[in-house]
């Protein structure tokens, strides 16, 4: 791609992103919506509901376990893809 076009597009993206940061909640603030809406339950209930102290594991494997299944499937897909693309028979 043309360098000037690419530079222009990059700058545009950068400006857009910086523009958007103006409305971000401050970094590390405990009162941002991201920490208030869904996640408190994971922290407060993980022991009670799953007996797993590590909230990351409990969310990963249980609350959002379905995502993780597909994450593993992604890995599997990659494995099959590489196998199919590269491997060939000894006498082929």
């Amino acid at each position: 791609m043309n360098r000037t076009v690419a530079f222009f597009v990059t700058m545009l993206t950068g400006l857009l992103l910086i523009y958007s940061t103006l409305d971000f909640p401050p970094w590390g603030s405990p009162n941002q919506p991201g920490s208030l809406h869904v996640s408190p339950r994971y922290i407060e209930k993980t022991l009670e509901e799953t007996k797993v102290p590590n909230a990351v594991t409990s969310v990963l494997a249980d609350y959002r376990g379905y995502d993780t299944m597909f994450e593993t499937s992604v890995i599997f897909t990659a494995g099959v893809a590489v196998m199919m693309l590269l491997r060939r028979k000894k006498d082929g």
Binding site: R64, Y66, D67, F70, E71, S73, V74, T77, A78, V80, A81, M84, L85
Partner: peptide, 19 residues
């Protein structure tokens, strides 16, 4: 987010098959 992961599965298999 689940949509994203599924999108990636579909895309990966597409890349491989197309190749």
């Amino acid at each position: 987010f689940n949509l994203y992961v599924l999108l990636e599965i579909a895309s990966f298999s597409a890349y491989a098959i197309i190749a």
